[in-house]
């Protein structure tokens, strides 16, 4: 194996990292936002929108992401045209991002929904009976109990998203994988192993850093608990003031 060659190609591959990261970050953020909306509406069990959303989630979760990429890339301009918008071509990167957002809107919803449902009925009823407004109930009671359950699943979903971006080269995006393919073509398929090993390591590094971010978030929810414990000191001061009275 030619390690020198791997070191030589690394900078060229890294040049395309921003494209991959852009796709990951934008699809993750908007995919999560979409999934929150989808989950909210699904939980309401609406008469018409409900079944439509169930179909959407079922379809997106059951069809390969590769096919979804093609469907969006080729299908979306046609759909827009038939609706009367002359949108033209969306371009490979935009199409990839749109496809990944639509996919994650469904996929993450299947993480958020069970996390929400895992919070017991009694917790809702307690907050309701005490006179919490729905938004207060969600913020103070439901979300803090839902988050620790949803976070590991969301962390996994991000790793899948990173992997899924390795498919966008099929639309012609020059991301890490696209760059590797191009370089392989230029060298007539020499040093295949070095090339694939190099990008495997890069994907690994991307996943490691996203994993760290999720761990940090988990740690943050844990830290809040620790902080609460430190509030004990404060409350003890109150206690003294009470006993003095």
């Amino acid at each position: 194996m030619d390690v020198a060659y791997m070191i030589e190609i690394f900078p060229k591959l890294i040049m395309t990292l921003p494209i991959t990261l852009l796709i990951i970050v934008v699809s993750a953020i908007f995919g999560l936002l979409l999934s929150i909306g989808v989950t909210y509406l699904r939980l309401k069990k609406l008469i018409i929108i409900g079944p439509i959303l169930e179909t959407y989630v079922s379809f997106m979760r059951s069809t390969p992401i590769l096919i979804q990429l093609f469907l969006v890339f080729y299908g979306l301009p046609v759909l827009m045209n038939s609706l009367g918008f002359n949108a033209g071509d969306f371009g490979a990167i935009t199409s990839s991002i749109i496809a990944l957002i639509i996919f994650n809107g469904a996929y993450l919803s299947e993480i958020l929904r069970p996390a929400y449902l895992s919070v017991e009925r009694g917790q809702h009823e307690a907050a309701d009976s005490l006179g919490y407004k729905p938004i207060e109930k969600f913020r103070k009671v439901i979300f803090p109990q839902l988050a620790p359950i949803a976070l590991p699943g969301l962390g996994n979903a991000i790793i899948y998203l990173v992997h899924d971006t390795s498919l966008v080269f099929t639309l012609g995006v020059v991301d890490i994988m696209g760059q590797a393919k191009l370089m392989l073509a230029n060298t007539y398929g020499e040093n295949k192993i070095e090339m694939y090993l190099a990008i495997a390591i890069m994907y690994w590094l991307v996943c490691l850093s996203s994993d760290r971010i999720i761990k940090l978030l988990e740690h943050f929810t844990y830290l809040k608990r620790i902080k609460r414990k430190s509030k004990v000191k404060k409350t003890k001061v109150y206690k003294e003031s009470v006993s003095i009275q």
């Binding site: 017991e120 009694g122 917790q123 009823e125 307690a126 907050a127 309701d128 009976s129 005490l130 006179g131 009671v141 109990q145």
Partner: peptide, 15 residues
């Protein structure tokens, strides 16, 4: 709800 308060069979304290 703010004029009444409920004590539940299953306590329902915020966990």
């Amino acid at each position: 709800r703010r004029k009444t308060a409920m004590v539940f069979q299953q306590y329902n304290l915020f966990k």
